[in-house]
Design a protein around this nucleic acid. Structure first.
Lengths: 223, 223
DNA sequence: AATTGTGAACCTCTTCACAGCT
DNA sequence: AGCTGTGAAGAGGTTCACAATT
């Protein structure tokens, strides 16, 4: 019943989450370089732009194949396409937004998702005042009909932005409905079966990292 | 010029970022337990609720002191207070929001920040149509006057939600203005001096983790 | 009897360093 | 000569296992 997400077991073997995250970053760099008309890039250059070592860059790629040419570097377009394939960005993904609050509404308008082929095709909420209203070209559906609606909309992933109290119960329903990937904005640790991937976007934790860093040594006495 | 954020060097020694993140999670659990009227908790129970091992919980605490009683467990209120102190949650923090877009606006209304003593006291943007308008009880200030405004508002941390193209330049200005902590929503790797802490909230990376997980094995051919 | 606190073992991730291509 | 790809070494984080304490 328990998942520790430090790695993913895949057809490539065990891949560290950190590696996957860096691939996303390299991908963004490569897109940028491509628009700049740059055709070739070295691991050294990718490293510099992403604040890692060049050995790290090469090692990250090595789990998936050999994409470069010794003595020359990497072809920007080829490498970009390879990473897109690895990350699954060469296909469309359909998202369900579960919970239409502040954050949820912002995500619906978040262009970067669409730019990477992630599309919201379903919106769910439990608030009768919201159910039936339209946001963009989607109608807010009743959370009580979660399983049916998810099947109908061919949803691949769920973006969970409900209050903390409701999050685990909704996660259970998502799992029950067959969802295998959840982006969780609720500030709790979701417990899901091992075949379900959860990624957390926990802004309170991140800001508390910052206060931890600042609170060190120079503790402020008063404001 | 380069920062790898895997740990923080502090008065407690080197503390892994993962430990700090877990402290935030334990803290949330303790708050919950306190409202439930629970007065004592074991490392086993904290572990279960946060999906880690009990040894991990005890080790995490051990970097900061000995907060429990052998044979009995931890006093919920005491432990909560200790973690609050460690994380710097026993004081108010003033935030600047830099960039008022979708996400920025949602963050201004994000209650959990205020509940943890994080308050926005300054809003900056470069768009003339936004400068001078009011959001809540704050006036949007001109990004060009960043340093002055930050000094005036006694800002501790910046929340950066400007477009990727502008992010590094704004980060440089924040650093120049003396800011030591940045919560970055822009989808790029910010390069900052070692004494500046950056935490990234990169939703595109997180969702690409999910597509990586789903793309594995069962690659979908068509939709 | 129960549960913490922690050194040591273990495991995972990063970096080194160099052989192998271009 | 330049740069990749990778086995081995190194660093760091997690888990074990048990002495210490209530």
């Amino acid at each position: 019943m328990i998942v520790r997400t430090k790695e993913s077991r895949t057809k490539y073997g065990k891949i560290a989450d950190a590696t996957v995250g860096r691939l996303s970053r390299y991908y963004r760099t490569l897109k940028h370089l491509e628009t700049q008309g740059v055709s070739t890039v070295s691991s050294e250059e990718l490293a510099r732009r992403n604040n890692v070592t060049s050995a790290q860059v090469r090692k990250d790629f090595s789990f998936f194949g050999a994409f470069g040419r010794r003595g020359l570097g990497y072809n920007v377009s080829d490498l970009k396409q390879n990473i897109a394939r690895i990350l699954g960005l060469d296909q469309e993904w359909h998202l369900a937004l579960v919970g239409v609050g502040n954050i949820g509404r912002a995500l619906l308008n978040f262009r970067q998702f669409q730019e990477q082929n992630f599309y919201f095709t379903l919106i769910l909420d439990s608030d009768p005042a919201k159910i039936g209203t339209r946001i963009g070209n989607l109608e807010v559906k009743n959370l009580d009909h979660l399983a049916d609606e998810i099947r109908r909309a061919h949803v691949d992933m769920a973006v969970l932005s409900v209050p903390a109290e409701a999050a685990q119960k909704v996660a259970d329903q998502l799992v029950e409905a067959g969802i295998k990937a959840i982006l969780n904005f609720a500030p709790i640790t979701l417990l899901v079966p091992p075949d379900v991937t959860v990624r957390n976007e926990n802004m309170v934790i991140e800001i508390e990292h910052l206060s931890f860093a600042l609170a060190e040594g120079s503790r402020k006495i008063e404001r």
